[in-house]
Amino acid sequence: MILSPEEWSIVALSLQVSLVAVGLMLPVAFALAWLLARSRFPGKLLVDALVHLPLVVPPVVTGWLLLLLFGANGPLGRLFEQALGVSFMFRWTGAALASAIMAMPLMVRAMRLSIEGIDRRLEQAAQTLGAKPRRVFLTISLPLALPGILAGLVLGFARSIGEFGATITFVSDVPGETRTLPIAIYSALQMPGAETAVTRLAVISILLSLAALVASEALARRAGGGRTNHVL
């Protein structure tokens, strides 16, 4: 299957949006997962609920909330514009933000599970061997949480690549800026006689997701050394 220039640009945009979304969300999600797995603090339940909100609320509502917060007149939107010169409206940055927020709960859940699964007694053993907290984290906790981190990345990427509702609500359908694969499929469906285009885009979308899955399995196998790890 040879892609047309227009299809290429849709695929490239989708990859750009998803990779940026997952890449920027990775440290945030890991920090949240660590916090939820390891700490007790007042308001933890609230943080937990907020993290999971995008999973349970209709995506359109998430998109609308993003519009209120990060729109041109939203408080956070203005903050980003003034502090970093980043605007989100009708831009790919907005699509990435929507993807990141929608991917967050899945990423946090996967990472939290693996952090909770770390045998704390191994961390204690490392301490008795003279390792300071930073070294314990880098050499014991982080590698043992790696399968969950990879799982979070894959789930987050898959969720981002498929993201539709929040994105189209937040930043609409702008060719070249916010028209990612699912949005391109949707707009092709609106046009009469575009069945071939729809089929081609759908096949690309399936292949992309499968490739991500295979890549992550391979990564997990390498990361696991002699042991068998499965991402999902």
Partner: peptide
């Protein structure tokens, strides 16, 4: 409590 993600050599050298 050997570290499961390290070979024996790395376990021995950890501390």
């Amino acid at each position: 409590r050997l570290f499961p993600h390290m070979r024996v050599r790395a376990n021995l050298l950890y501390g």
